[in-house]
């Protein structure tokens, strides 16, 4: 495979869904940096108090950026690379284990 820096063209732009919003990102970027760059600071609520939380470290340590990605809850947005058309959701409630969401089983 050709090393990425030898590719002549600039990196592609990809887009993914965050709730109802469409977020633009560079390929190879993480979900968290793309969200922050488009002004999204809040990625979920705290389990105990319900207060808002947002990314803190961006290197996978603090787990404050947990979001639901393609039906799987508690994914680190700062470690997950964006994919075209991925579905990202803010986590505001406990996820049901059963029924509802068809995408979960993939």
């Amino acid at each position: 495979m050709r090393p990425p820096h030898d590719l002549p063209e600039p990196p592609h732009q990809v887009s993914f869904r965050f709730g109802d919003e469409e977020i633009e990102a560079w390929e190879g970027e993480t979900v968290a940096t793309a969200l922050l760059a488009s002004g999204v600071m809040i990625t979920g609520v705290r389990a105990m108090s319900g207060r808002s939380r947002g990314p803190y470290c961006l290197i996978g340590v603090c787990h404050e950026c947990l979001v639901e990605i393609d039906g799987l809850a508690n994914q680190r947005a700062c470690i997950t690379t964006v994919r075209q058309n991925m579905k990202v959701c803010r986590q505001t409630r406990l996820r049901p284990l059963t029924g509802e969401d068809e995408t979960r089983e993939q």
Partner: peptide, 9 residues
């Protein structure tokens, strides 16, 4: 609080 990050972040 959201809006607080590390500088490295």
């Amino acid at each position: 609080l959201p809006g607080v990050m590390s500088a490295g972040a």
